[in-house]
Write a protein that binds this DNA or RNA. Structure first.
Lengths: 157, 157
DNA sequence: GGTTCAATTTAGAATAATTCTAAATATTGA
DNA sequence: TCAATATTTAGAATTATTCTAAATTGAACC
């Protein structure tokens, strides 16, 4: 049976609380709200975008708190950082195994369900290196930018 | 027969010139020097580190020129950007297929010869997405940080 | 309910990373 | 030699992130 929105929120809070507590941290209203902002629109927003969106319904939240909250959520495995270019770091709340597609034209980021897991890839680390997880970033052109109407630039043969 | 250092430098310059010219750009002394700095020490330096090293033998080079040179080298496929955390972008001149190992403890970056190519991975892009290349970043602990003497922190089960 | 303590938030300052600008310089082709 | 364009330069400006001190919050204890 499908769960109500309220039930989903409650379960979600429990999961957040559990993960944060496990790392010795608290689930504060600000952290819950930041995570909610990420769930509301899965467009891999930057810290600044998260801040602006969070302020809409939580005007008192500060930039430092947004950074603190994102760091807390990342460190206990509730959110992933996405670093694909020289710009600001982006954030993704989808913790299922997946890759990120980064459009080299417009800079947009998209989730791609396929990815490479440590087991699949059969990666052998040089001695002493301990593999914890693999991130795959797929570079290319998104549908809007690979449309034939758009002029191509900086193309390498 | 092994080539002399001078022969290697000449061939290298030819390759740089060819790639840059193909993108409508010139191989300037500054760009040659920046590429040389990257070849000298393969520790994935940041733009600031490249700048400081380049100044040692080319005191007149400016920060803007270093950024311009790195961008030029990246855009024509002679250098790769490495963006693994929220810090400054790092650079790698190794254009052979490889992964980057990012140590979550000390932030160091290492080349790992294994990687995933578009063919190997059999990635299927959603409609309209055009895959151009795949970057794999392996997260974990480097030999120095995974030594048992070092206290572990922020460990996630 | 009050107190204490530690975690967290806040506002703003400071630092770091990167981009931008205008002037100067360098290079190439005519 | 000259003109045109690319590139470099120095410094300013902007963006991204970190830091700080004070205030607030929440939990544990009495």
């Amino acid at each position: 049976m499908a769960k109500t929105t309220k039930q989903n929120k409650t379960e979600n809070d429990e999961r957040l609380n559990e993960r944060l507590a496990h790392s010795g941290m608290r689930l504060t209203p600000q952290r819950r709200h930041v995570h909610e902002v990420l769930r509301e629109k899965m467009d891999h927003p930057t810290a600044d975008q998260v801040f602006l969106r969070a302020k809409e319904t939580m005007p008192e939240i500060s930039m430092a708190t947004v950074y603190n909250s994102l760091d807390a959520l990342v460190s206990c495995g509730l959110v992933r950082q996405v670093n694909a270019d020289r710009g600001a770091t982006r954030y993704c709340h989808n913790m299922q195994p997946h890759s990120h597609f980064y459009c080299d034209e417009c800079g947009s980021v998209h989730d791609i369900l396929q990815t490479v897991s440590p087991d699949d890839a059969n990666f052998r680390m040089p001695r002493g290196f301990r593999l914890e997880n693999i991130e795959t970033t797929i570079h290319g052109k998104c549908p809007e930018c690979s449309s034939s109407k758009k002029p191509r630039s900086n193309q390498i043969l």
